[in-house]
Design a binder for these strands. Structure first.
Lengths: 210, 210
DNA sequence: GTCTATAACCAGATAGAC
DNA sequence: GTCTATCTGGTTATAGAC
């Protein structure tokens, strides 16, 4: 049905989640009251609890939504490439672009900053979600790097490069001079070199051993 | 005086700040009550306000203390080296080691996560502190990279490599297998290669132009 | 599904005795 | 400097009418 595209028919639950992501990013989860959120979507505070049982449930949904949105974009970009090296480059490029895209940015920033506000059961759930994704991205790295890299080494490289990318949520300004595409290109190159030069180091070490 | 070294003579204000850093890191600033903090240092909640005017003042002090502690260690490490390249390597190594050191880690994590809880005036103050430091580190980068790098390019590289380092606060586990020295060495190498390979890219681009 | 009204609780900060 | 006692206001969540 075409009606599904009209803004008026976006389910109220979705509107609440989108608004929550924006407010949580701006003010932090703890400093955003259910009254703030309700008013921002044009409701009274009590009405929110018809859609969500607790405030923390909203938080967890925002985080999982962020992970879903980002992983979908990255998975699509990877699937479009046919060589390991091209897949790795596509992963880096699309990961940064997905993180900083207007659709994802609020959700992912909340995931980054407000993790400590989740109660233990929801924390486990979200953490599981996140781990699943990280393992997927590490598999792409593994595929492209030489065979003798240990799991620990792969993990270290991925912590370095994905850390650099995630950190962009701290400083990225959408109204800055560089376009998102340019930024993604340059970050991809730095990420590739962080991987490759580690390869060089290993080759030198191997030479030393012979 | 030797007495200054005995634990009993550490000023109460210091004890409060140290404890606050630890609690804020564990539970987040907003979820740590003044009662939690007071009890953790063996006081009643009202007594805290003899040492600090407001809860946010404690937060700002914790953040500035973290920046001071880290920058001191990095500055010392840089000062001990005599070539630009050695200074750059020393900066990367010491920055990671300082961030993750038991003395700094709590403070710096609070700076990272709880920035949004600062009222505007304190936010400006802490942000100024932070900018001053970042400019110092960028000067070390500039000194070691070829002359034709623009300010924007320097900024991008520093955002990448320092982002990767800061992100370690998210995942670093002091009781893990690798020592902090090993970790710092590997991160330093990846950071150096992210800088250098950007140099290679530029050389290729220069060749293309001729 | 949304509203109004409110329950039940907990927060930061203050005042004055010691 | 620390304590006790308390003020004031804000918080999540619920109940029942519409």
């Amino acid at each position: 049905m075409v009606e599904a595209e009209t803004p008026e028919l976006v389910p109220q639950r979705e509107v609440i989640l989108r608004t929550a992501a924006r407010l949580f990013r701006e003010k932090g989860y703890e400093r955003t009251t259910v009254r703030d959120l309700a008013n921002a979507v044009g409701l009274q505070s009590g009405s929110l609890f018809h859609h969500f049982a607790t405030k923390t449930e909203i938080l967890a949904e925002v985080m999982k939504r962020g992970l879903d949105l980002a992983s979908e974009q990255v998975a699509d970009a990877i699937a479009a490439e046919s060589t390991p090296d091209a897949r790795l480059k596509a992963m880096f490029r699309s990961y940064l672009k997905a993180l900083l895209s207007p659709e994802c940015r609020d959700y992912m920033t909340v995931l980054l900053y407000d993790f400590r506000s989740l109660p233990p059961d929801l924390a486990r759930e979200v953490h599981g979600y996140r781990t699943t994704q990280e393992n997927r991205w590490r598999a792409v790295l593994r595929e492209s790097l030489s065979d003798d890299w240990s799991d620990a080494e792969i993990r270290l490289v991925s912590q370095f490069v994905f850390g650099a990318m995630c950190w962009s949520l701290q400083w990225y300004n959408p109204s800055g001079t560089a376009t998102l595409d340019e930024l993604a290109e340059q970050f991809m190159q730095m990420a590739m070199s962080a991987c490759r030069v580690n390869d060089c180091t290993r080759e030198e070490a191997a030479k030393d051993r012979t």
